[in-house]
Amino acid sequence: MKAFTYERAESPAAAAAAVAARPGAKFIAGGTNLLDLMKLQIEEPVHLVDVNRLALDKIEPTPDGGLRIGALVRNTDLAADERVRRDYGVLTRAIVAGASGQLRNKATTAGNLLQRTRCPYFYDTNQPCNKRKPGSGCAAIGGYSRQLGIIGTSDACIATYPGDMAVAMRVLDATVETVQPSGSTRHIPIADFHRVWGDTPHIDTNLQPGELITAVTLPKPVGGTHIYHKVRDRASYAYALVSVAAILQRDGSGHVAIGGIAPKPWRVEAAEAALPQGAKAVATRLLAGARPRPDNAFKVPLVERTLAAVIAQAKDAA
């Protein structure tokens, strides 16, 4: 870990300004990912701006019938919230499918969106990695890639966004609210939040330097059956090989987003029209243009199979 300086921010706008003012500065909230990466010197912030005491830890109703989740709401609290459990079950299910109780107690809503990839080559500083060290190359391509991406990847990087919560937020059409160093605010649809990074995989999201997430808003509930199906080798405490977040209606329509396969929660709205035709039809459209590697080619049929499981489960529930 490199030595760094530290300050505690007084307001969201001041936090944003503080990070913008210092190249190499970062926000810290739960720290469940950032601190690990700092210990390995994968992240080397020169300055940390602690946002934990900003009053961003409330879950409140929005005027249009949705929910506004403060950036600092801990994963445990978000998953347990009665309104979330009742109206946005897919979100609760996704959150409790991830990490451990201890980590969820600490991890925040905004931090979870910003967690970095779990590509093993990203974690080994002896290896070339364009995400960790731009221009150094990608050791994962041609290497061990069982966990890695099959779509939306590039010749520079085949890593995935590893989280669960954002996959559910994607299917819920969430919006990320931010404050800029200037004090102005922005609303970023979750679809546009994570990048398909092309040849700049070191930039995970479309946040600008110093831009601070203040909340995530969920639109008015859409009803339906909420399912989060996470597929992994062991029963708990593992990243998804494939996950499906789904909201399915009685008439067979619905929304699905896929985790574990791409740089971002993967959703193709046009594919959802095929839901009444079944998993194969949806998967074919979702994965058009997929470029699997020998180690992870199984994710292509696994997406279809997991979708089939989800559709069957929704029928049973209906």
């Binding site: 080559y121 062991r234 708990s236 405490y237 593992a238």
Partner: peptide
Amino acid sequence: FGFFVNHDLASYEVPVHAD
């Protein structure tokens, strides 16, 4: 490159209680 890539407990999975 000649090494075991999954060299931590996040990537070398052993059973957890739920298993």
